[in-house]
Design a protein around this nucleic acid. Sequence first.
DNA 1: CTGTTAGCGCATTCAT
DNA 2: ATGAATGCGCTAACAG
Lengths: 353, 353
Amino acid sequence: MKKSDSFITKENKFKQMKKHQVTIIDIARELGISKSTVSRALSGHPNVHEQTRTKVLRLAEEFEYQRNMFSVNLMRNATLTLGIIVPEFHRSFFPQVIMSAQEAAKEAGYNLVIAQSDENYETEVANTKVMLQYQVDGVLISLTKETQNFDHLKQFERRGIPIVLFNRVCDQIMAPKVIVDDQLGAFAAVEHLIKTGKKRIGHLTGPETLKVCKNRKEGYFDALKKYNIAPDDDLVISYDLNPGKVKIYVNHFLAMEPRPDALFCINDTTAVEVIKHLKIKGLKIPEDIAVVGFSNDSVSTFIEPQLTTVAQPIELLGRTAVSMLIEQIARDPDKWKANTVVLKTTLIIRDSS
Amino acid sequence: MKKSDSFITKENKFKQMKKHQVTIIDIARELGISKSTVSRALSGHPNVHEQTRTKVLRLAEEFEYQRNMFSVNLMRNATLTLGIIVPEFHRSFFPQVIMSAQEAAKEAGYNLVIAQSDENYETEVANTKVMLQYQVDGVLISLTKETQNFDHLKQFERRGIPIVLFNRVCDQIMAPKVIVDDQLGAFAAVEHLIKTGKKRIGHLTGPETLKVCKNRKEGYFDALKKYNIAPDDDLVISYDLNPGKVKIYVNHFLAMEPRPDALFCINDTTAVEVIKHLKIKGLKIPEDIAVVGFSNDSVSTFIEPQLTTVAQPIELLGRTAVSMLIEQIARDPDKWKANTVVLKTTLIIRDSS
DNA sequence: CTGTTAGCGCATTCAT
DNA sequence: ATGAATGCGCTAACAG
């Protein structure tokens, strides 16, 4: 058991390890005043004599005093920190979202605690526990591809901690959500392929369970329908988003009769892998097969030919999610909203189509 | 002032927001026992009747009891969490390090708090404050390219919080460090270029201030020396690692007489940008100019031609840093070590050389 | 403007 | 095996 472990081994050691933390009591004693006054001076309370405040501040600086957030948090039962749980760190997408979220959070006076689930349901659950532990005031979350059970999310609600889902959302949870117009974005991508003369367009997507995949697939079918191209279920393949396996599906597509003349991929990482393998097979892109991705990850301009893709407004996404979360935090739990904000995507046409 | 802001506006609100957290007192009351017993039962203390323990555990589960870490931390003045501060999230390098560090930390019973400095000194300082606030038991840190002053790091030492520097280290701080054999790696890369017949090898590196850059440059010169190639300072250019500016330096290299026939770049992001611009200029890689990078980022296989690069053992790096940190935590501050572990790199020869 | 007091949730003596 | 009492560092209510 972890609990008994730490009980026996760790805790006692630490006590000796860390040096005495300087507290308001130290400052108070040194100045011959009460700790309340010190506290007030430090926290900007109006009712403090300017001279006293100055003295306190100066000494605090000298002592390198640092408020003990645990006692503060313990008092106010709030932490001014937000949590963000992302499914992975492999693509540049989530790190970028985190960066913009961090910025927005900071501007609003919040810290951001980051957790990464490694596309693993168990880890995601563990991460929610961490957030609970840290008593974050709210959490942004994007689900792993495995997540089917959502009890761990409901826990937040029960505790009065608001959450905002983004990118990888689900229908089962009532909460504010920020997504992009995946369906429309996919539609635009496929329409573009059709307009460039492609007739047999394959779609390599992620697990059915991810709503984002479902939406993009809908967009794919919408476009086919609009241009009277008969949909062919054989042309739509779901895979587990493990880049190493893309090769298998590319081979599968290539073995078809007639061969697809375009592939719309669920994301840029997939598209890039597809391109790599198509090139190995000696196919010309986009002449033999066009390829389109989704996200406008940084890799999309590294690959040759540069990737046509559907750009997501990442910066805006992160900021929107944060501001929705902060608004929710300010609301009484019984007045929580559960609206979905849909951000616009942009088709970026490059050389792979 | 931020402080007075939060004093006035935020805190009071929250009190009402969050629902009552279930505490050991709730459980004690419900069971008609004392909170001490509940506490003991929960924390695996031996002196608890098995029946009592079972009852407590069951009720805790039912109530979804969650220990309030702030009170726990307040008590034991330690958090079982580690901090990691990285300079950026743009390359895949740091996210990967984080992932392996997270894994290692978890295995040792620690949580990991992540902070990202955006290559910005002020942000780095702010991040150290955050770590201090969270009372992390130790911190892993890789410096921003701007960091010249190291007082914020010394603060950790003064507080008895050990740190381990990795990748972007500095000489001014006495602390354990984990780096890779940058000099040797660079040497191998440049030697490889020389052996493929290149005679005029340029080096595009980062700011002088980064030791990692200095070391790689040394390796570059070592190789030239070994093969009796006269070093030419014009062929070594430092830049600020802003990928957008790479073009300028590529043009500069191309305008030289005679033109360099190879470029050794400080990292893969740089190398990829270099390749992109060389291709735009119509140069053939590696025939006209060979390019070598450093790190074996995921991009290195996306670019065409695939990038020759020096691979770093990222997984090992993260794990080593964590284990060194945990060892340091276990030591008395006056017995802290300050050893440097150097991990091996591997030259990966692909098509760009 | 300042000091005193109480209490946030918990682990840990010291009793019993 | 259990309960009562104490205190971690801080803020807030109350009393001057």
